[in-house]
Amino acid sequence: MADTFRLNGDARPLRPDTTVSTMLEQEGFDGAWFAVALDGAVVPSSAWAKTAVQPGAEVEIVRPAQGG
């Protein structure tokens, strides 16, 4: 069975050698004002290129939305 990871709760196929940077590119994220957590810890943007996304990883990507 192919490796997968979860992005905001949804299963995704995991390509070999995926980093946070390549994952964001594949998923179409660019621009500002979002942040990434990997397995419950924030990954600062300075570390995206060198942080591997492992099989079974839980990735959260959040942006600001309206809120009181």
Partner: peptide, 28 residues
């Protein structure tokens, strides 16, 4: 104030530009 929510790649909102253009502090 703003909240933080799971994002889809295309789900860009005009909220942050509106807040920043107003020159106010954003409080998450």
């Amino acid at each position: 104030t703003v909240s933080m929510r799971r994002a889809g790649a295309s789900a860009t909102s005009g909220l942050l530009p509106a807040i920043q253009e107003s020159g106010v502090e954003v409080l998450p």
